[in-house]
Write a protein that binds this DNA or RNA. Structure first.
Lengths: 133, 133
DNA sequence: TGAAATTTGTACGTATGTATA
DNA sequence: ATATACATACGTACAAATTTC
């Protein structure tokens, strides 16, 4: 239940409640979250507030939203191993909107830029594990 | 100028305009963006729309907002070199809210989790460059 | 020092559009 | 077709911190 007198804003209390449900398994990967209007009534806050809470979880890479369909807990993708040759240099950052569109990268997923000599690779954060060989 | 008939939403057009100014140097690192109300009048949209545009840039790690003060283009921090020993494994992801608070990580900055045997390091994305040794 | 203005943060509500179920 | 569900956009109000005068 939302505590109106708390210094923690309502949207963060909602986000925390959902994050806890995801962490303890009551909202497992793939499971749909309640709809925005359901959460509205459940917590007694405005839809704006619910949307801000969900936006925060998206930015963390915890959930994904399919427009007109709903929000669900993100499935943990298989991580492919990527071998880092000696001398490779890696920078990590958030993708640009252009990169997100081109490689179909979800919100809240960073990228790794791997350089080895003249070669450059863009790796999608949630799909790889880097291994120094 | 915002094109109301475009399929590109207004907030994205504003974000694109600001991103372009940052990219071409007319808004250099450290420079303050116009205030939300200035941008409101400049683009002829509601404050909500401006705030959504700026939120997008924050999530990309392009700008940072100081409450009650303003939003400015993020300074590019010095990247410290981090040596990856052979056999090290690296996963990258967004930090949890707890990690962001503990290590004072800005919005839009990912982390790298480096494991080598039993040791685990959490590296802040915009402050390091990984080098496979 | 202190008051006023500025600036961002939070929250509510309304309306309309569009894609999905 | 109808209902559901998310996306966009506008506007209002007040709070809290910073900055300016």
């Amino acid at each position: 239940v939302i505590d109106r007198r708390s210094y923690v804003p309502a949207y963060r209390q909602v986000a925390d409640a959902l994050r806890a449900q995801i962490a303890d398994g009551s909202l497992p990967p793939g499971r749909a979250l309640p709809s925005e209007s359901a959460l509205e009534h459940e917590h007694g806050v405005a839809r704006t507030t619910i949307r801000k809470a969900i936006a925060e979880l998206r930015a963390e890479g915890v959930v994904e939203t399919l427009p007109s369909s709903g929000t669900r807990v993100r499935l943990i993708p298989e991580r492919e191993e990527f071998s880092l040759q000696r001398g490779s240099r890696v920078v990590i950052r958030m993708p640009t909107p252009a990169e997100r569109a081109e490689y179909d990268i979800d919100e809240g997923v960073p990228v790794a830029i791997v350089r080895h000599g003249a070669r450059t690779h863009l790796l999608i954060g949630d799909r790889v594990e880097l291994i120094a060989k």
